[in-house]
Design a protein around this nucleic acid. Sequence first.
DNA 1: GTGAAAGCGCTAACAA
DNA 2: TTGTTAGCGCTTTCAC
Lengths: 343, 343
Amino acid sequence: MFESYTIKDIAKALGLSTSTVSRALNGSYEIGAETKKLVLEYAEKVNYRPNPIALSLKEQKSHSIGVVVCEVANNYFSQAINGIESIAYNRGYHVIITQTHESFDRECTNVKHLLSRHVDGLLVSLSAETTDTSQYQYLHEKGFPIVFFDRVAADVNTHKVIANNFKGSFDAAELLINTGFKKIAHLTSSNNLLITRERFNGFKAALDKHHLDFKPGYLKHCNQGGMIQDEIEFAIKELLSMDEKPEAIFIGSDRLTISCMHILKKLGIKVPDDIAIAGFTNSDVVELFDPPLTVIRQPAFQIGQLATEMLIKTIESKWPVEEFTTEQVETELIARSSSQKPR
Amino acid sequence: MFESYTIKDIAKALGLSTSTVSRALNGSYEIGAETKKLVLEYAEKVNYRPNPIALSLKEQKSHSIGVVVCEVANNYFSQAINGIESIAYNRGYHVIITQTHESFDRECTNVKHLLSRHVDGLLVSLSAETTDTSQYQYLHEKGFPIVFFDRVAADVNTHKVIANNFKGSFDAAELLINTGFKKIAHLTSSNNLLITRERFNGFKAALDKHHLDFKPGYLKHCNQGGMIQDEIEFAIKELLSMDEKPEAIFIGSDRLTISCMHILKKLGIKVPDDIAIAGFTNSDVVELFDPPLTVIRQPAFQIGQLATEMLIKTIESKWPVEEFTTEQVETELIARSSSQKPR
DNA sequence: GTGAAAGCGCTAACAA
DNA sequence: TTGTTAGCGCTTTCAC
């Protein structure tokens, strides 16, 4: 069962050469129908499976793709990885997952490691710390297939898959405004990330539309992307101790949203009575929270699938790919009681 | 950067043979110190990385391990996979993850697929549907490395890693009893799984210790392991409509615990006022639930690490491994308000 | 239509 | 100490 037959075994058993067997198995036309049938039947009988490693060596392809994300234990990324795996599996690719934990150094190490593993392409979501994307630029120029998803590199002109962050933010902010909140803070990730800036822009646009001033003190960046609990706690405490305390917080990342809820609970702050909350998260259980959370959800699974399809298409393209597209998918706003006006 | 140098390139550049280069790189002692230094320096300079595929072909090892779990989007398994990856990565192994979605057929397909990928060993957690473990028995007898974790096969004598399910259940049940509940139902997964039976035994032992009768009608199995929502909802509705309605439910699996909370919310049942809840889950956010959940947590990350270490040790053993051990780790009971006595 | 031989990158037995 | 050679499993020219 696991000691598998080789092409050589079949050749020997059938009194043929290995090349003939290979041709039969690969449906080559320059082969006798008789012989072909014979080989195919025998291969079926002994349950022949080509050795993927030998194939890889021959084809100079590893049939594996490298994934770089900040962390797996994150609702968004675990769902995206699910999507990645679902496509990769069907197309015969391994997926090698690496985590940056929001560190640029780790990101570089991971990319090097994946390249030394001879992955055929890279699926990347940048770390919160990353500003230098030259390694990707270099690889991309050399023709190495890379697809960015979610946290994309603005200055590398390759395939990208992103959510409509602007609209997601805009909708959430507008919901808060329409509910009657005027003093809305924005807790978000590092400004290095393009998604952070897009989400801020959406938020700002909603304020503008409704003629509300944006107060710089209401904008809090967690430059570690929320990997350090103290960073978030500090930002929240600052917001809560302001003279003009915000009535609501709109949160710009999955991890921050969940962490914020933990911290507010710890501090004994009531949501939405003391402060209302709305944020990006892909958690499936937020409806069970106290209070149920108002969230912006991204189609993470679909994003993972899309990115993987684009990557494999690039990998398998016969010609150097010159045209690169950016796919944008829509987010979904789900209103629950965490963003309600306290009575 | 990604067009890597081969041993041949180095040999040519230095006017040596490939074997000499290979020896230098592998620190063989039968080589001149001079030559060695030369090769090493050059290799360093051009950033030489051995081709893992060529190595695999040569060594007849894929340096990858196959993982079979029911699903990744499960708190317990995503944490376990994290543990698996952390060890495998450091030891130079790929991890190929497959999901059964609790189907025995899928499980068989996955195992076949992994074997055709020439994985060096298997990390398995059985599906809820599985009763026939002969494929593992067969592989194991042939000397193929397999480690079971969590949902182990009782009749295959190989390495296993499990949590102390009996004690975990016992403690949780005793907590409910000590809180004052006498009518305690048990909602659990398929009885095919050994963990289901162990958890039931722990639950039963606590009842016995406190001289409480076990009522067969209070035991509900979800034979699909909770993959079908209706199955769980049906079981819960049955419990709630009994003449002698239970005062508390003790739940025997991660997925069931979370699903149960969704269903109770949907049905408008108040926890713990209408019914108290305690259950196995590894979710990190249950303290934010309404009400905060009383849970039994497993050290999933550690279980994944342990299982992977055992597997790699077996894979790399020079001699056929004859001695197999079962590692048992402790669970943790965290009491919160979902299991409190309503006033 | 089929076979022989080379080669993918690497290691190791054997020669020198 | 170093080089030559064969071979891991497979595909693909190039002969016949």
